[in-house]
Simulated scan of single mutants.
Amino acid sequence: MASNKEITRVQEDGKRAKRSVYHQKRKEHEASKPIVEARAVTKYARISPTKARSIANSIRNKDVSEALQILIFSPKKSARIIYKTLMSAVANAENNFGLNAENLYVSEIMINEGPRMKRLWPRSHGRADVLQKRMSHIYVTVRDKNAEK
């Protein structure tokens, strides 16, 4: 980004441009680039991240149609949640950015840990154990494979 002459901070007279002018030029330059990816996020999904990552690893870098087939036929709970997020990312790509769904692939999928609900589990002799119900944040990014060539 710094190698581009049109968005450098130094002007022709040798003085530095104001920060606001620099950022405005940078945003205009970013806006002129074609959009080749779309994202979707599911937050606070009630599944532990370790269980969700096993499915996420199986669809990473696959075509969207192949990834959807894997998710449809998987019996796991995380597959249903990731399926909805992937469909949302594909819909965002089609409706917001005008990308073709047939040319998309899952470029990035991340399962991060969300907050934990802590519940008490009664034990013998008046004691209690803490039961942690984990949550996940799911991030799916789809990219257009034809635009990268």
Rank of each mutant, 00 (worst) to 15 (best):
R16V: 12
R16W: 10
R16A: 15
K18Y: 10
K18H: 09
K18D: 13
S20W: 00
Y22I: 06
H23R: 11
H23F: 08
Q24H: 15
K25G: 07
R26H: 05
R26S: 06
R26I: 12
R26Y: 01
R26T: 04
K27P: 00
E28K: 13
E28M: 09
H29L: 09
H29K: 15
E30V: 09
E30M: 15
E30K: 15
A31P: 03
A31E: 08
S32R: 03
S32A: 14
S32E: 04
K33M: 14
K33Q: 14
P34T: 07
P34M: 05
P34I: 11
A38H: 02
A38N: 04
A40K: 09
T42H: 06
K43C: 10
K43N: 15
Y44T: 10
Y44A: 14
Y44F: 13
Y44E: 14
A45Y: 00
A45M: 02
A45C: 03
R46G: 04
I47L: 10
S48M: 01
P49Y: 03
P49E: 08
T50K: 12
T50E: 10
K51E: 07
K51T: 03
K51L: 06
A52E: 02
A52T: 13
R53V: 00
R53G: 07
R53T: 13
R53E: 13
S54Y: 02
S54N: 05
A56R: 02
N57S: 09
I59W: 00
I59A: 06
I59S: 08
I59T: 02
I59N: 05
I59C: 05
R60A: 08
R60V: 05
R60W: 11
N61G: 02
N61C: 03
K62S: 04
K62A: 06
V64R: 03
S65R: 13
S65I: 11
E66G: 10
